[in-house]
Design a protein around this nucleic acid. Sequence first.
DNA 1: AACAAGACCTGTAAGC
DNA 2: TGCTTACAGGTCTTGT
Length: 309
Amino acid sequence: MPELPEVEIVKEGLVKVLSRKTTISEIEYYRKDLRNKLPVHSKKWIEKQPILEISRRAKYILIKTPLGVLISHLGMTGTWRIRSKNEALKAHDHIQLQLSNGKKLIYNDPRRFGIFEIVATNKMNSYRRLLSLGPEPLSADFTAEYLFATSRGRKIPIKSFLMDQKIVVGVGNIYVCEALFFAKISPLIEAQQLTLEMSVQIVKEIKEVLQQSIDAGGSSINDYSSVEATKGSFQKQHQVYGRKNQSCHKCSELIQVKVISGRSTFWCVNCQKGSNNHHERPKNNTTRKTLSSPSGAQGSGRQHRKIKR
DNA sequence: AACAAGACCTGTAAGC
DNA sequence: TGCTTACAGGTCTTGT
């Protein structure tokens, strides 16, 4: 479920609930593992300790105390929510954090692709999952020059390249499709075919689409929601993701879908160049980003919600 | 080293 | 209606 914008929203939700004053008084598990075995002995590094900082690195949420850092990755279906008074546990509620102010935080994760680990604070710099991650896409380190240089000699599709967390973090299947649409570049071209000019476009559009999604509260498809259970709305602005056979908002061509390295990939063969797909017709670009104007975006009206009788 | 494909899980929706 | 299959926001491992 969660790419960088969604993880960022969840992290902000945790910031609102936790602080130096409000600590985690107790960590409780309702099963013994997610993707990793749940940490038992190191719980004491977190429990009753002052919260120094809550941050995000890539798709990981980090809750730092003097002794330990609690690490949460949401996998595909992980959520954190506040458990209201007398609320019964639900299916797939795996972890509960009792807070010093009486509130309870619940981690729910049907598919259990998530991660929940505790690392000694003084060993964080050698924590394996954060080693060899690429730059944050919204940081100044993620530049066109960097993308151009790292893509030399790489034959994998640009789409797969951008989803490689060693290259750049936080970009997943939704936002890579969206960013490539705005950059007008086919997901199929080899990474090494990028020109510097194309790199400029891609970097610009990745930053823009991620920031706009954060501003919209993320994309809520199926079950994603924030800690306070609010839904994001960015899915309403998706130009290609999840829009198979619907018409492109820019040129009306039908949106294509193809599996690339195991993930469904959506794009417009007409707007996105390099699909070894001929016509490069310089479409008169009247509608650029319909994004900022909620009035635009509609196009063909119907949303990809099922209306099943 | 680089790349593709499969594995890990469960729920939901589509297809028959 | 009910059974079967395909697919889902992400890593991580295995094999070529």
